[in-house]
Design a binder for these strands. Structure first.
Length: 582
RNA sequence: GCCAUUAUAGUUCAAUGGAUAGAACAGUCCCGUCCUAAGGGAUAGAUGUAGGUUCGAUUCCUACUAGUGGCACCA
């Protein structure tokens, strides 16, 4: 909680004490001191009167009045301008000059000095980087930055599936491709990766077409067999020809991912691969299986399974009938590898919510097998991204790739500024940052646990609550600052306008909203706040002249600078860049 | 079928058990340029259904309805 709110709380508690309420009872009084949503009703409020009316055996309205009188005497007049009781609430008005203790870090007991690993994005080489990865990246990036702000020591992890059946499908699907293997200098990395993505789609298509002919058909059986063989070859690297193609494809994919991370603004500390976690996980499972009281069991066809039902979960396969470790077994190996690299206090994996059940099982298994690490593992999930105007479904094959979405938005953004008098490189860079802001903000302005309906037009629009709307507020301030260069900056003696006062009173709320975002792991508090701040700035700007002739109002100019600072820091916490111009 | 999760204006989203349920877009009506991808103001409009707990429920509980995800060798 913010210091100012703590001060009020402390005095509320002493109010209970002077009313002869016992300490044990006081602890049970769950009142809050929070920011007033309606700024006209004051800066802070407390619901103390409502919550304590039973204990004080008094009408809440009377308590509110008494409390307000009491606090008016106790609290520092240099901070509190006015304290008033209205209905059942007590409202607090801070003095105009109030500035909160402004620090980059906001202490929180769950984060301060804790070592926390954030694993997110997790794309798979030789497969498309899809919008799910984009979401995971956006959310993981901001959560890690929020943790940093809260005082945590963090590392960013990315885990990439460079082994597994999906790769076998891609490699197997290559034979059906009409275009040749794009191993040439004049083919861009994007097109090379696109080719691989197409091979994966092709492989899946051929397989499902064949499945429709009947699961007993010779063709389907043959295809399944071939994919199985390919999977084995990738796993044990027994076929030199396969190795060459595989290594090349993997390298292209990773290069492409790196390019995307640059655009998105993520820098990972460690990369992990399934090809590394698989043998480690497999060994751990095998070793445990040999024990008398193993948590694993033999399933159908010689599989190794974990019977989750005993723990209120469901059964999952850890090793396939062919002896290959599944995602679940790899997850065990990964936990060990991650912890060996950096002894974290907590490891958080961010994925779409379709994986909720898997993580419940794997985290349980890890806890049983490696008690030192298991309890430190946690999973945060997010909803799926859908698009306005179209029912997206993976079944119909209409899936939009993440990098295509970014590119698409970049082009749309570029289109809007193509006539500006600017260097080409700047235009490209700006349209890129704006596009990323548009996408990220759409995701972060709402509760990420729910599905997100992405609207391309609205997310880029400067009307309404969008990332670019906030970026634009910063740009507007920049252009004011530029205009003031060389002009006379002087204090003016005049009463503050209502808009000026409101903007000023909104600024210190940033820390408070950050605290809430940290406390609830909810970046939307910051996003919503930034919209509010940008909007208040625009209202202020509309009504107040900062520059009159060749004179600049010093007070208003400083307010602009402060606003810009908070907007910039807020966007940065969301993993969004500000731009100089637009 | 079982488990999880969601349901708030026409649409897309907010709201630690408490004040008059906040925005944005679309609609209607104004103002406007120190910002030019300008922007701002006003106006109208919502808690899926039925119960329960509570002084008080959008928020907690139960049932129902509807949507989404998951439920053994994909990740």
């Amino acid at each position: 909680m913010l210091q100012i709110a703590e001060i009020i709380k402390k005095h509320c508690i002493s109010y209970l004490k002077i009313n002869n309420i016992e300490d044990i009872v006081i602890e049970s009084v769950r009142f809050t001191v929070d920011i007033n949503k309606d700024i006209d009703r004051g800066d802070l409020y407390t619901n103390f009167a409502l919550v304590s009316s039973k204990i004080l055996k008094q009408d809440p309205t009377a308590i509110a009045v008494n409390l307000a009188q009491y606090l008016d005497k106790e609290l520092d007049k240099n901070i509190f301008k006015k304290i008033e009781a209205i209905d059942n609430y007590v409202n607090f008005y801070l003095v105009d000059e109030f500035v909160s203790e402004d620090s980059e870090n906001i202490y929180h007991k769950d984060f301060d000095s804790k070592k926390i690993a954030y694993e997110y994005t997790d794309p798979n080489p030789m497969k498309e980087f899809h919008i799910g990865h984009l979401m995971s990246n956006t959310i993981g990036e901001t959560l890690s930055r929020i943790a940093q702000m809260a005082g945590a020591d963090i590392k960013r992890y990315s885990y990439q599936g460079d082994a597994g059946r999906h790769l076998a499908v891609t490699m197997w699907g290559l034979r059906f491709m009409e275009t040749p293997w794009p191993d040439a200098d004049n083919i861009s990395i994007t097109d090379k990766v696109k080719f691989l993505g197409q091979a994966y789609v092709m492989g899946n298509k051929k397989l499902s077409e064949s499945k429709e002919k009947g699961e007993d058909s010779d063709e389907y059986k043959q295809y399944m067999q071939e994919i199985e063989v390919m999977n084995q070859k990738i796993y044990d690297r027994s076929d030199e020809e396969v190795n060459i193609i595989y290594d090349q494809g993997r390298e292209w994919s990773l290069e492409k991912f790196e390019e995307l991370y640059n655009i998105l603004g993520t820098k990972f500390d460690y990369y992990f691969f399934e090809s590394k976690s698989a043998p480690v996980g497999l060994q751990i499972v095998k070793d445990d299986l040999e024990k008398e009281n193993s948590i694993f069991a033999k399933g159908d066809n010689d599989t190794v399974i974990f019977k989750g039902e005993d723990h209120g979960l469901h059964t999952r396969v850890f090793v396939t009938s062919k002896g290959i470790p599944t995602y679940e077994a790899k997850e065990i190996g990964l936990a060990k590898i991650k912890y060996d690299v950096w002894n974290f206090d907590k490891s958080i994996v961010i994925t779409a919510n379709e994986q909720n059940e898997v993580f419940k099982v794997t985290n349980k298994v890890i806890s049983l097998l490696i008690p030192d690490i298991g309890p430190k593992m946690s999973h945060i999930s997010h909803g799926m991204m859908r698009f306005v105007g179209e029912k997206m479904s993976s079944r119909t094959g209409k899936v939009i790739a993440g990098d295509e979405l970014v590119e698409d938005m970049m082009n749309a953004s570029y289109e809007k500024m193509k006539d500006r008098d600017m260097e080409e490189g700047d235009k490209k860079q700006i349209s890129q940052d704006v596009a990323v802001a548009a996408i990220k903000f759409s995701i972060l302005k709402q509760n990420f646990k729910k599905d997100i309906i992405f609207d391309k037009e609205k997310s880029l629009s400067l009307e309404g609550d969008s990332g670019p709307y906030i970026q634009y507020a910063v740009v507007r301030i920049n252009s004011i600052l530029k205009k003031t260069e060389g002009l006379e900056i002087a204090k003016t003696e005049r009463e503050l306008s209502k808009e000026t006062e409101n903007l000023n009173r909104t600024l210190w709320r940033y820390n408070h909203m950050c605290f809430k975002a940290i406390d609830e792991m909810a970046p939307q508090y910051i996003a919503q706040y930034l919209i509010d701040l940008a909007s208040r700035f625009n209202t202020f700007y509309n009504k107040n002249k900062i520059i009159e002739g060749d004179k600049v109002d010093k007070g208003l100019l400083e307010l602009c600078v402060k606003t810009k600072d908070i907007l910039t820091r807020g966007l940065d916490t969301l993993g969004i860049r500000v731009v100089e111009r637009m």
